[in-house]
Design a protein around this nucleic acid. Sequence first.
DNA 1: CCTACCGATCGGTAGG
DNA 2: CCTACCGATCGGTAGG
Lengths: 225, 225
Amino acid sequence: MPRGHKKAATREETEQTRITILRTAEQLFMEYGYRAVSTRQIADACGLTQPALYHHFADKQDLYVEVLKENIAQTQAALERIVRRNETLQERLQIVVRYLFKSTQYDHALMMHDIQHELEPQTRLMLHELFHRGLISPIASVFEQGLHDGQLKAPQQGGMDAISASYLLMSMLSRFLVQSPPVYGAQVSANGQEAAAALTGNAFFTDVGRAEAIVQILLHGLAVK
Amino acid sequence: MPRGHKKAATREETEQTRITILRTAEQLFMEYGYRAVSTRQIADACGLTQPALYHHFADKQDLYVEVLKENIAQTQAALERIVRRNETLQERLQIVVRYLFKSTQYDHALMMHDIQHELEPQTRLMLHELFHRGLISPIASVFEQGLHDGQLKAPQQGGMDAISASYLLMSMLSRFLVQSPPVYGAQVSANGQEAAAALTGNAFFTDVGRAEAIVQILLHGLAVK
DNA sequence: CCTACCGATCGGTAGG
DNA sequence: CCTACCGATCGGTAGG
């Protein structure tokens, strides 16, 4: 049954608008946090009025939950691909870390804080499980395999179970770890990343260098053997 | 010149009120974040009206900055004491981590996010330097010593400079790492910590166990040698 | 998807 | 340190 006589939005246009809102909201929520982002900010950035958002999402929390669902689903798909590759344990972990650095310029700790403190209890539980299944479990499967292979130490030998190792790896990706070098003293002159890399004598301040350093230390530690 | 004729607050009472406000605000800000805590919440928790806060602090940001200053100063004092002890590198790091776990039930990543996004640029810079001098530098001095001793790998040998290692250690303390085990499946029955510890076969889910595990892995890694 | 508008809450001020 | 109150902004709704 055709009905394009006025200028009502087609189903496709509506879907496009929904996607625009989701992507815009994702960027804002992930950078500033749930509470700090207003529905008007999101609407403005999409070129809409604020009430228009409520045509696509029931309320602010619903929009946030949809953002997280899409974000986690996408990350999960990528991680499961990486995890099944035929490469060494160390190489797969480095690819995982590089992916997480590249895909998310934000801090998972902020996301977890919002889930814990800004949402209703039942939503909180659901997202926690989603996070666990989507991000933690795929990474844990890599560690699990290393434990079975005998490449990784068991908990009793100074190692760690696979789930805990996955959470630990995630926490090592926290942005505040290194986002800090604007000025400590006053001796940093020009480009922050390169200057810092030169000062410290390694490539820790580039994304790839950071990914390699983190995995290197998680596996082999800082101590001389 | 005496003047106690009415019932004006003495200087001592005023100071006590200020301390009460600071401690109350610290708990709230550190748990929920700067923006999520209203000045009325703080005042209520202190048994005051909201405008009364403005007798002790210029505005909300000023109160937050004072909270951070006191918090960092106290942590700095404790860390500098620990760092000068006559114990092994590993023992000192474990004491540092245990102290940070015990003293701050919150997440430094949240604090850094608030500093980055909720404050004026000049305040942000000042607090960043305070954080660096108060928390990072003391910890870095431990790593620095280990590097000089030859106990720790240099950056060129798969190690890390002292400052980067300190940020990495701080990020490994992130609460979201492990605060998560409410329910994943439904098989966790009674006490979360103990049940999880039993399941995983180590003491990672107690504070002391976590501190030891983190330092163990930071120094020696997860891989079998 | 818009205009118009709601009650609630925010940080902060006036004045005593 | 209180009462009373301000303008701004919040999430969300009515009605078309």
